[in-house]
Simulated scan of single mutants.
Amino acid sequence: MALSPSVVPQESKEDNANCVETKPSQTASIASEDPLQNLCLASQEVLRKAQQSGRSRCRQCGGSRMFYCYTCCVPVGNVPTEQIPCVQLPLKIDIIKHPNETDGKSTAVHAKLLAPDSVNIYTYPCIPEYEGKDHEVVLVFPGPQSISIEDVSFHLQKRIESKGRNKADNLDVPPRKARRTTDEEGWGLHESTRQGPELKRVVFIDSTWSQTNQIASDERLRELLQVELRTRKTCFWRHQKGKPDTFLSTIEAIYYFLVDYHSAVQKEKYRGQYDNLLFFYSFMYRLIKNARGSGEKAKPQLLQ
């Protein structure tokens, strides 16, 4: 069963791929009404049509779904794949999903649908091998030892230099051979300083907040640098009661990390390159917001 057409957002049917320019004086009021207002999105007309026509079958498993199959990570029959944007990301994304996390309620699948070449989803206890890669992989998770995105390069550099010193101090290897080995492998102190640290992969945990510690404390993730998104606030319709509004949904965390990384680490002006990661999320947000605003009983499960 689908939400009735009366709750479909009344937006222009023209392609809205261009950013909406807003005067500074209007920014605060618009943001309070709709925090996703100024995204640079591909046309969502395909989602509006799919919402009006109702649930459709998954092309792979045959399950009845709305918009996409959260099991197979593909659009359903009434959502043409070619009309779904494909986002190119500067980093690889690994999502570790708790086995008790309900697939239909998770936003992790949005990332896989929209950036399939850069995103992988694993179900805990299955975790990729990160041993020896803690200088190029970070875990996004809040905690007493977590750092801000602005400090990522500094701390990765310290890890590279530490590895270089440890290799050079290996007394079982002749000094000349040790020096050649570290240079060849790119771990030499001067070489690493010249090249600078390079973040390659970011790990996210997809779980209710009460279940996250089990995954975050796993010995395979324990040595990774932890990064916290301290200034971003969620607008997730399933926000967990009693948790601060800085506890983001999975797709929000991925999106905001990339936006902040682009500006703070890559030192480039952000121009909406990753906004389409919120292609499904923003549409669902407005569906539910409009349903609640019209007095109808909003049921997020109808979007599954």
Rank of each mutant, 00 (worst) to 15 (best):
T208M: 01
N290R: 15
G143S: 05
Q10R: 14
T123A: 03
V138L: 07
K158A: 14
G54S: 02
L229D: 09
E184W: 11
R232I: 14
R286G: 01
E184F: 15
A298C: 07
R271I: 04
V203D: 02
E223T: 11
F283H: 11
Q44I: 08
G132D: 09
H190K: 13
H239D: 04
Q301W: 09
H135M: 00
R286H: 07
Q26R: 15
L287R: 04
D15C: 14
A111Y: 06
Q273Y: 07
E14K: 14
F204T: 10
A178F: 03
K243W: 12
W237H: 15
K200C: 03
N170P: 05
C40E: 06
R286L: 06
D218G: 09
Q37K: 09
I288K: 04
Y124T: 02
R65S: 10
K269A: 14
P244T: 09
E33S: 11
K269N: 11
F247M: 11
D260Q: 13
P35D: 00
S12P: 02
E136H: 00
A2L: 00
K241E: 14
T246R: 13
L287W: 03
K23D: 13
P142Y: 08
A298V: 07
T81K: 14
A111F: 02
A291D: 02
G54I: 05
Q273C: 02
Q214C: 09
Q26C: 10
H98A: 06
K177R: 13
Y256E: 15
C69I: 11
R201K: 15
T193Q: 15
G272I: 03
E11K: 12
V202A: 03
Y274G: 08
T27R: 14
R201G: 05
S263N: 04
K233W: 06
V173F: 05
P175V: 03
T27E: 15
A115F: 08
T81A: 14
E296K: 13
L287F: 05
G242S: 09
F280S: 01
V138M: 08
E198P: 02
W237M: 10
K177M: 09
P142F: 07
E268P: 00
I95P: 00
A298M: 08
Q195R: 15
C72I: 07
P9W: 08
K243D: 03
I30H: 01
Q51S: 08
I205K: 01
K177W: 01
G188P: 03
Q37M: 09
D172T: 10
Q214P: 00
S6Q: 09
Q240D: 13
S217V: 02
T246M: 07
